Simulated assay, not measured.
Amino acid sequence: MAGHRSNCIAQAMQLLRLPSSTSRVTVSRAPSHLRPPRTQTRTYATSEEAVSPAAPEIDFSTSSSRSPARIVPASPAYFSGSPRFIDHVLKLEKLQTKYSGLPTMEASEAPRMAWFKLAQFRDFVGEPVPTKKYKSLVKILQRLNRIQPAAVPAEVRSTLESFLRPGNPYAQQLAPPTVDESGRARGRGKRKESSAVVHLVEGEGEILVNGRSLVDVFKRVHDRESALWALRCTQRLDKYNAWINVRGGGVTGQAEAITLATARALLVHEPALKPVLRKAGVISVDARRVERKKPGHVKARKMPTWVKR
């Protein structure tokens, strides 16, 4: 009985799977000339029949429009971070290669040129140029500047002039200081916050500082020796009179400012003393300044004393 029931179930399942002969519907197809065009659908078949052929290349000679397929920038550095700077570098390198065979001179003999400072060059190109890259550009400029002046092409000269600061300071030669009609030579010196002006004239060795004697202004012997060291090292203490005006700073700064001003005034009278004064160290400018105090510090770098309890 159980076996007969299972056979009935199997036959019923087969009848459900097979379509019924009575449910079949015949669909008549339309004629071929009335059928809509067949659209090609995308398939993932790997056979050669299923893959569509590649598109042919564009022939611009036969096309009606002569416009290019894409816009090509005029500058080769258009897609870089600093295109204008790179354009300048490429132009200079091209000039350096083109005129590499021209005669050159030593770097010490080449004419001095005041190139753009870094901040000025950044404003000139309108781009944030790094310092290292700008130094590489200046090296190319210096190499082109070493060409013999008689052989410099006009193209190179005009390019170098475009990188000069406005008002070339090396092209302006200052008139050398001279002795005035009264026989006085003027010298000015600065040190720290002090500035001094010295008028030196031939005399018996009289020194006045702000209308007072040297001893009244400088109490220490070291400051008096420092102020007159330019005259003492050249043995000119008793040959010149000096009228000195000094202001600002402290005693030591004022004494060292007088030293520089006296040496410069002495060079106006006797330029041959420059090697002696240079060796004595009195015509070298000391540009050192006191470091500023910082917030939260006792001085420039000293911190307050730390106490745990």
Rank of each mutant, 00 (worst) to 15 (best):
R122V: 12
M13L: 11
R292W: 01
N7S: 10
S63K: 09
R264Q: 05
V129K: 05
A50Y: 09
M1F: 10
R35C: 02
F79T: 11
L260D: 04
R157S: 14
P149A: 09
P128C: 08
P153G: 11
F121H: 11
E204A: 15
A54W: 10
L90N: 15
Q173T: 14
A12Q: 14
L16A: 11
L144A: 04
E193C: 02
P153T: 11
S182I: 04
Y78R: 04
S6V: 12
R232E: 14
P149F: 05
I283R: 00
S136F: 07
G189R: 03
E106T: 14
G248E: 08
P130R: 12
D59Y: 00
I58G: 00
E225D: 15
P295W: 04
I9P: 00
S75R: 01
L15Y: 02
S82P: 09
M113A: 13
L92F: 14
L144N: 04
V51T: 12
E161C: 08
T259R: 15
W115H: 06
N168H: 08
V285I: 10
Q40G: 02
M303R: 15
R157E: 13
V25P: 00
M1S: 13
L90R: 12
H269F: 04
L144C: 08
D180C: 02
M105G: 05
S162W: 03
L164S: 04
V251E: 13
L200A: 00
P73C: 11
G189L: 07
C233R: 01
Q148R: 13
K139W: 08
A230V: 11
A230D: 07
P83N: 03
V152Y: 02
A300Q: 07
S67L: 13
A261V: 06
Y78L: 12
R29G: 05
H269K: 02
S32V: 10
L200V: 11
H199F: 15
I283V: 14
P19Q: 13
R146E: 07
S226I: 13
